[in-house]
């Protein structure tokens, strides 16, 4: 009898190959930030320099998009955390008519392609004559960030034994005390993880944003313009590194916050 305790060499190679395929391309972004060639994507780079970081720092057109992206991500995350937690609390504590429909409604903004969410908002703004602004960007982002927070929160609610809240009430705590002393400490890390992921998602979102931003530029939109009409290509790489790092760490933190549970963050984007 052969047991399949050990993977075959072919499978191991294919699995590791698959992982490398997912990761190696990113490294090139870092390499090209140091190339001396700024007109083509020549490989290998003819020479290496660190001057592009200084150039990027001094480019005035980068800062406003960066600020806008940070502001949009912060506001959207805050809104999504409130709305996502509320709906998770409602969904976790009771069964009621229309529950299935609501869960579908929460998931829809990420289940349907971004272009639909974007185009829908665009249509609504057109019909209602709403001018583009930071608020219109936030409306789109908050909508698809709710599900991220919801997913994290609802999983933790499910794991948190309902008896713990009953025990709190039994010992004399009113609803607000139970929330403050029992629910929040147990939910905190899951909410933080959800917030981190929502922030990462919002910070680098481009598809919906192009429909809702009007003349404003978020950092991803700035990058998109540079990709279509490149100038000083390595500067784009420097910005790409900034975007990558700004999203990388929240994701990593989210992973560590929820590690060990059955609901490890990032199971579904």
């Amino acid at each position: 009898m052969h047991s399949e305790a050990r993977p075959s060499k072919g499978l191991t190679a294919a699995a590791i190959g698959g992982l490398l395929f997912l990761h190696l391309p990113i490294l090139l972004i870092f390499l090209y930030a140091f190339t001396t060639e700024d007109r083509t994507y020549q490989f290998p780079p003819p020479g290496l320099t660190t001057k592009w970081f200084a150039v990027a720092w001094n480019r005035a057109d980068i800062w406003p998009p960066l600020y806008l992206s940070l502001r949009v991500a912060a506001i959207s995350t805050a809104m999504a955390m409130v709305l996502g937690t509320l709906v998770a609390a409602a969904m976790a504590r009771s069964r009621f008519f229309g529950r299935e429909q609501i869960s579908l409604l929460i998931i829809l903004p990420i289940a349907l392609p971004g272009v639909i969410t974007g185009m829908s908002l665009r249509s609504a703004f057109a019909i209602m004559d709403i001018p583009f602004s930071t608020l219109t960007i936030v409306m789109g982002h908050a909508t698809f960030c709710i599900v991220i927070v919801y997913n994290n929160a609802v999983a933790r609610f499910r794991r948190l034994s309902g008896a713990v809240l009953e025990a709190s009430a039994d010992l004399g705590a009113n609803g607000f005390q139970s929330f403050r002393y029992v629910l929040l400490p147990n939910l905190g890390s899951a909410l933080l993880a959800g917030g981190m992921l929502a922030f990462a998602l919002s910070f680098d979102e481009v598809i919906v944003t192009t429909f809702t931003a009007g003349q404003q530029s978020t950092l991803p939109i700035w990058m998109l313009n540079e990709l279509v009409r490149p100038r000083q290509r390595p500067v784009t790489n420097v910005v790409a590194i900034v975007v990558f790092v700004t999203t990388f760490f929240p994701i990593l933190i989210a992973y560590y916050l929820t590690r060990g549970g059955s609901e490890t963050a990032g199971g579904g984007k």
Binding site: L22, P25, A200, D204, V206, T247, Y255
Partner: peptide, 15 residues
């Protein structure tokens, strides 16, 4: 698997 899933879409395309 999770990091590439979540990391910046545009950066990946650019790569």
């Amino acid at each position: 698997i999770m990091l590439p899933l979540w990391s910046s879409y545009l950066v990946k395309v650019y790569a």
